[in-house]
């Protein structure tokens, strides 16, 4: 039986203008966009994710993981290409917290209002969130006093309790402790069983074994591999180990290659 496709990406490109100063942003309005050099954060990205998939997203820094997650979450838009997303998406990224002056409970309420939830629903979710986050008295303190771990606990609790169709966790659990991460995994497992789709972005792919069923490996803004975890993980490990062995000279050359590939110099279409 085939499942519904919830995310379908076809030839996605995300291209940012590289400005040397704020002033040029303004002048770009009056000049053709070819006057500045541009950076291709994503290049020709295509993949399909089915309902109930748990997709581990890996790649080195700057490979386009977060940019892609923002596109899926509907926060930013692709420059070119087609992206279809079915259902409500919730993106949890590092440094969660809407208003640092407000305390935890107020932030929960604000987030609920921003998402357009009814008062009743916010009220109902509050206790569940507080219990899951388990940060004690800090729930009544301004969020600026939180440690990064507490921030991530509350953020995760809120995202989970909003019960989205697609949950994206972008490195947000990296700062949590072992026990909490296990609790989150258990909870996400439950979500998956009820037919939710999860994107899990992480630098430590070892955690993805047994949790994710598919793996999306991004490299230099392109899809390097998209397959079952058992297929991608060994190859990715191999790649990372290979990178570690490179000399400084070789790394420099790779970086130059990458810039040549991803940066469109000014004046070129």
């Amino acid at each position: 039986m085939s499942r519904d496709i919830v995310v379908r990406a076809e030839g996605l490109y995300k291209i940012f203008d590289l400005y040397s100063s704020r002033k040029s942003v303004l002048s770009s309005l009056f000049l053709p966009s070819r006057k500045v050099s541009r950076f291709q954060a994503l290049m020709d990205v295509s993949f399909r994710v089915e309902q109930g998939d748990v997709v581990g997203v890996v790649g080195v820094n700057g490979s386009g993981k977060s940019t892609l997650m923002q596109l899926i979450a509907g926060i930013s838009w692709p420059t070119r290409g087609d992206l279809e997303v079915q259902g409500e998406v919730s993106l949890l990224s590092v440094g969660f917290g809407l208003d640092p002056q407000l305390n935890g409970l107020e932030n929960i309420e604000l987030k609920g209002i921003l998402l357009g939830l009814s008062k009743k629903r916010i009220q109902a979710m509050r206790d569940e969130i507080v219990e899951f986050a388990d940060i004690g008295e800090f729930i009544n303190q301004p969020m600026k006093t939180y440690s990064s771990g507490m921030r991530s606990r509350l953020g995760f609790a809120i995202s989970i309790c909003m019960d989205p169709d697609i949950l994206i966790v972008d490195e947000a659990l990296a700062v949590g402790d072992g026990a909490f991460i296990q609790k989150c995994f258990d909870r996400m497992k439950k979500m998956q069983e009820s037919g939710k789709t999860i994107f899990y972005v992480s630098h430590s792919p070892s955690t993805m074994k047994g949790f994710c069923n598919r793996m999306l490996w991004l490299d230099r803004g392109r899809v390097q591999m998209f397959d079952a975890v058992e297929v991608v993980l060994p190859r990715y490990d191999q790649f990372i180990n290979g990178m570690k062995k490179l000399s400084v000279e070789e790394k420099k050359r790779l970086k130059a290659d990458e810039e040549h590939e991803r940066i469109i110099p000014r004046g070129r279409a």
Binding site: A73, G74, I75, L91, S93, L98, D99, K111, L114
Partner: peptide, 8 residues
């Protein structure tokens, strides 16, 4: 800070 984090 709102539309950077959620679809708004």
């Amino acid at each position: 800070y709102i539309f950077q984090r959620i679809k708004f």
